[in-house]
Amino acid sequence: MIRRVFTFFSFVSVIFFPWPFTVLLVLVSSCTEPLVPLAVGIFADTLYYVPSVGTLPLFTLYGAVVTIIAFFVRSRLRTGIIKR
């Protein structure tokens, strides 16, 4: 339940709150839902990114990086003897 609440508020904060707060929520969510950083990054760039700005869609890129890191950490935890 709590992971769904965090995921929901991550999306809501993209519209309602400044982006640093969104980043914080997404980092917390990524502990249990590795795909959320990528999803929220795509959502933020869908709303705010303008190709003519001359910058890359940073939120999608950073979201993808955090998702990869979250998957890596999860894989390490699963292979650890403590979790067995």
């Binding site: 769904r4 999306f11 839902e33 590795p34 959320v36 990528l38 999803a39 929220v40 959502f43 869908t46």
Partner: peptide, 9 residues
């Protein structure tokens, strides 16, 4: 939840 969020985005 994660898959649904990604599909939504």
């Amino acid at each position: 939840t994660g898959r649904f969020a990604l599909a939504f985005s």
